[in-house]
Nucleic acid binder design. Structure first.
Length: 651
RNA sequence: GGCAAGGUAGCUCAGCUGGUUAGAGCGCUGGUCUCAUAAGCCGGAGGUCGGGGAUUCGAGUUCCCCUCUUGCUACCA
């Protein structure tokens, strides 16, 4: 039906997520990757591809060993526990994975050893000495170039010593040209394509051989016995990346090796380099075909801010799913952000998507159909005369439907969903245009029935194509429309543009009740206060200690308010003109209206951050920030105790 | 500093190889129907397409310069 350039290879669909590192708690980023992969897997199965969907956990490495020790647990027991949490979450989310791999699985370890041996025999892995400048105090190697006076540790300033550690190396440098050739020959091997350029430039700048074993810890896959070097364990990336092969039985029983090469490896952009450089190089060494696509998505921010533990604004996917519905959340994640770009999570945006896209456009359309068919035809819906009266609308729907598949495989999932919504608009317009209530009054029942048939057909098509994103919801819609979402019906409705058989619509309650207010309490503020004193160890992201030089990056000045007015339509904002002396007058928008009137501020002095990046508030440019202190009692401005000359620096 | 990708309506983004009055969704706003979830539909406001220059009969779309953002990378701190 549709153009299918390489039908044979499309028949197989091996889809992977990264294996998640068990030193981490599942957050929206994990859920995002997994949901994308799940949607692709469901789609692939629906259209009849032989699909294998893999996810799992990465459990080796020094950090895990230490984390377990710190908790007084056996390393394996600790790994079991955390890995179990991931698995439980995906099970609760109904993720349709075919295999959940763990790097501590025996088969995986055997497979990795098999691969190591093969690379070793081939000469791609050799033993050498890793020389580095090592700071004993920081327990870290530093490249010479970072050292202070070629000797001292850049972190703590203590002298470093040259430490030699035995290591096995992979001849990554040998694969530079072949990698570049691969990127060149396969424009879509790395998605989004802009990321491919980054990778190419990195590879062009020269690749060094990769150290692939460690002797400093033991929690990892040991080298094959034949090599007889028991103090080495494999370094995490060789171990972890190999999961994509070992999950199929590579090196052991080869059960699913016919699934290789992967249709797509879904990853976050942080691990692009490993997947786009090391992984293909390993595969080349193993003389295996390379994956079709490596697709890297972006980050989620929260209300425009980066998520971090110390801010307490990490989005917990389970919380959101519980509050708003799992499938609504899935829809939101896939619809909201262009693939590869960063997305912002806010309850407002989520609610808007649910109310507008899902409720108004989709759910309400089904209700309209239920209402009309119930009122006019006791629920019966016949579609055989749709073409006679509404061919134009059918055509419009078909036009959108046929655009969908390529978008999905190009990872343009947000475009896919956008396009999928057009037929809904066609249906809603058609109802208003042809007015079935008028048709009924005029006795044109055949046309009214055909119109209902049109609506039902459109809803059925949309339900099928939306199924990968919202499997349960669309099953409910299909149920109301008297059909099931199966490969057969996919072929009948989507591929062959067939019509629904006559059926009686089932009255179901609204699928997407309107949401008026945010369900989850935004607790970031409270958390921050509670956590700050307790957690001093999180110096990287929390209330870190800074040097005096960092403090002086902030330019603080005494300024005089020479003009003050209210910002129209704003509850909180005042627009101030603050004189900083020497003709430097700043326009500052400040959220202090609730506590200060413009008159009270005029000709008074304030303390201003003078080198703050300008921002726009309510469309007004703000070129500074007025310092103030706020607690439950209210807000007060920080002012000089006695008037000082305008423009005086604060330090 | 180098490289790359971007800067298009309030917001998120489409605009292919240059060609009539620059588009979509959301938001805002006026009107309207009643089958429907304060939903739907119709209309409207809103853009010097980052700035400047060049090529062209004609540029959001090509070239040059500048500027800002983001990413990768280097280096300084």
């Amino acid at each position: 039906m549709q153009h299918s350039p390489d039908n044979s290879s499309c028949r197989k669909a091996y889809i992977t997520t990264p294996i998640y590192y068990v030193n981490d708690v599942a957050h929206i980023g994990h859920a995002y990757t997994t949901v994308i992969a799940d949607a692709l897997a469901i789609y692939s199965r629906m259209v009849g591809h032989d699909t294998f969907f893999l996810t799992g956990t990465d459990e080796h490495g020094q950090k895990i060993e230490e984390a377990a020790k710190a908790r007084g647990k056996e390393t394996q027991a600790y790994a079991d526990e955390i890995s179990g949490k991931f698995k439980a979450l995906w099970d609760e989310f109904g993720i349709s994975y075919d295999k959940f791999i763990r790097t501590t699985d025996t088969e995986h370890k055997q497979g990795v050893q098999f691969a190591f041996q093969k690379m070793f025999d081939k000469g791609d892995i050799y033993k050498d000495v890793y020389k580095g400048h090592y700071c004993i105090s920081c327990e870290t190697f530093f490249p010479k170039i970072q050292l202070v006076d070629d000797e001292f540790c850049p972190e703590c300033g203590k002298p470093t010593s040259i430490v030699e550690e035995e290591s096995y190396f992979f001849r990554l440098s040998d694969y530079q040209d072949r990698l570049l050739q691969w990127y060149h020959d396969n424009p879509d091997c790395i998605l989004p394509r802009s990321k491919r350029n980054e990778v190419i430039r990195f590879v062009e700048s020269g690749l060094e051989d990769l150290s692939v074993t460690r002797t400093s810890f033991d929690w990892g896959v040991h080298l094959p016995e034949a090599i007889n070097d028991p103090k080495h364990v494999m370094y995490v990336w060789l171990d972890a990346l190999m999961n994509y092969l070992t999950a199929l039985g590579y090196g052991t029983d080869n059960t699913h090796m016919d699934q290789w090469p992967a249709r797509v490896h879904l990853i976050g952009k942080d691990i692009l380099r490993f997947h786009a450089i090391y992984w293909p190089a390993f595969l080349m060494s193993l003389e295996m075909p390379l994956p079709k696509h490596i697709a890297a998505h972006g980050w989620w921010t929260r209300n425009g801010e980066k998520m971090s533990k110390s801010k307490g604004n990490v989005v917990n996917p389970k919380e959101v799913a519980d509050a708003y519905g799992l499938e609504n959340f899935r829809y939101f994640m896939l619809r909201e952000v262009p693939f590869g770009g960063d997305g912002d999570f806010s309850q407002r945006a989520l609610i808007d998507r649910i109310n507008s896209d899902l409720g108004n456009d989709l759910g309400n359309l089904l209700n309209r159909l239920i209402g009309m068919s119930g009122k006019y035809f006791e629920g019966r819906i016949e579609s055989d005369l749709v073409g006679k009266y509404y061919q134009a609308e059918l055509n419009a729907m078909r036009e959108s439907i046929t655009k969908l598949e390529p978008l999905l495989f190009e990872m343009q999932i947000h475009r896919y969903l956008e396009e999928l919504w057009r037929p809904l608009s066609v249906a809603n317009k058609a109802i208003d245009q042809y007015q079935p209530w008028t048709l009924m009054k005029e006795g044109r029942e055949e046309e009214a029935m055909a119109l209902n048939g049109l609506i039902a057909t459109i809803l059925a098509n949309v339900a099928v194509m939306l199924h990968p994103v919202m499997p349960k919801t669309t099953t409910a819609i299909a149920g109301a429309l008297g059909f099931e979402i199966t490969q057969e019906n996919y072929e009948k409705l989507i591929q062959k543009a067939g019509m629904l058989a006559t059926f009686t619509v089932e009255k179901i309650p609204p699928l997407f009740p309107r949401i008026e207010e945010a369900v989850l309490v935004e607790k970031t503020e409270e958390k921050k206060i509670e956590k700050a004193p307790a957690k001093t160890e999180e110096k990287e992201e929390g209330v870190a200690m800074i040097g005096i030089d960092q403090f002086f990056q902030t330019s603080l000045k005494i300024g005089t308010v020479i003009q003050a007015e209210e910002v129209p339509k704003s509850k909180k904002l005042l627009l101030l003109q603050v004189d900083l002396g020497d003709g430097d007058v700043r326009q500052v928008v400040s959220g202090i209206k609730e506590w200060y009137s413009p008159e009270a501020l005029l000709d008074t002095q304030v303390c201003l951050v003078a080198n703050l990046k300008p921002a726009k508030l309510m469309g007004i440019k703000s070129e500074g920030m007025v310092l103030a202190a706020k607690d439950k009692e209210g807000l007060v401005l920080m002012r000089p105790e006695k008037p000082k000359k305008t423009g005086t620096a604060v330090s």
